[in-house]
Design a protein around this nucleic acid. Sequence first.
DNA 1: TGAACGCGGACCAATTCGGTCCTGATTCAA
DNA 2: TTGAATCAGGACCGAATTGGTCCGCGTTCA
Lengths: 163, 163
Amino acid sequence: MFKVSRKSEYALIAVQHMARRARDGVTSVAELAQAENIPPDILAKVLQGLKRAGLLTAAKGAGGGYRLSRPVQEIQFLDVVRPFEEQLSVVTCQNDHGGCDRGGDCTLRDPMKVLNAFVLRQFSNLTMDMFLSPHKLVHHARADVTIAESALHRWSAEADVAG
Amino acid sequence: MFKVSRKSEYALIAVQHMARRARDGVTSVAELAQAENIPPDILAKVLQGLKRAGLLTAAKGAGGGYRLSRPVQEIQFLDVVRPFEEQLSVVTCQNDHGGCDRGGDCTLRDPMKVLNAFVLRQFSNLTMDMFLSPHKLVHHARADVTIAESALHRWSAEADVAG
DNA sequence: TGAACGCGGACCAATTCGGTCCTGATTCAA
DNA sequence: TTGAATCAGGACCGAATTGGTCCGCGTTCA
Ligand code: SF4
Ligand code: SF4
């Protein structure tokens, strides 16, 4: 249930690559495809997707290519992946375009909503620089909060508000 | 990328249902299917799957049905879902049957491994009783550790060990 | 003895996914 | 000015997955 699509992987690799060869930045599809061993055609679409998402800027013509539009520390994991994942929710009813054919009396709806919110929140703190430098250490190693506890906490908070 | 399969949802609903009507426990497929508005045929398979996973016990014959084989607090979310999700990893190379056609020089492999381990660890603390009682509150609301920090911490720890 | 029930294989239609191909637009450089 | 390099993106394909149905079998209890 957690698996990212292949396109997402390509996207992550691409961002990784372009961040490393940060030199003065511009990288063509062909160049990247060969360097990272990715089918050029599909990589092209992936990069187009990233551009549409605002993560890359494109330069056409000879000598052109793509360039990261902002520093890698400011790019979230979810930003990179989102264009290639039809939905990021745990459950279809939690989606924007979000209908569920089943009747409205689903006992799973509420807990899943809480779970979904928590998961997304966790992931939203993942930035792409972590995929580059293992030594970029965070020393704030705090207590080992699990989804279980946090989810429960939030849920009960909501339940209190609701009555 | 997080979406659970429909079968998993049915499984979760089923466990929920059987835990609520804990009375003396036994519930037939037809009964459950009607009560929760689930196609009986497919629900049958779902329950079979849960039985194979050891979560349910079955009683054949007239008056038979399924019964939870252990208290709901001891059933993990992942236990319920696992039989219906072909892989629980973020990435295919991280799987048991786990080949990736791409060459062995994937720059995404290591960070994904860390991420995957963390996600699974988080989810392994989710038990099914949380899907029932919002008031089963945990007061240990500790610091707001994110995947980001913990993942980085573990990764760098591994990096230290590795050299 | 027969109805209620679990067991499980065969099958199906729709969707998704990874990937290829091909046809433009641009733009720079020779 | 020409043409190669490069992005842009639609059309298409085969394979796999998914959600679901159907049907026949074995078991067990009333
Ligand atoms: S309403 Fe229930 S069955 Fe439908 S998508 Fe939401 S959780 Fe799943
Ligand atoms: S090796 Fe790389 S491309 Fe292959 S599954 Fe693992 S992370 Fe993805």
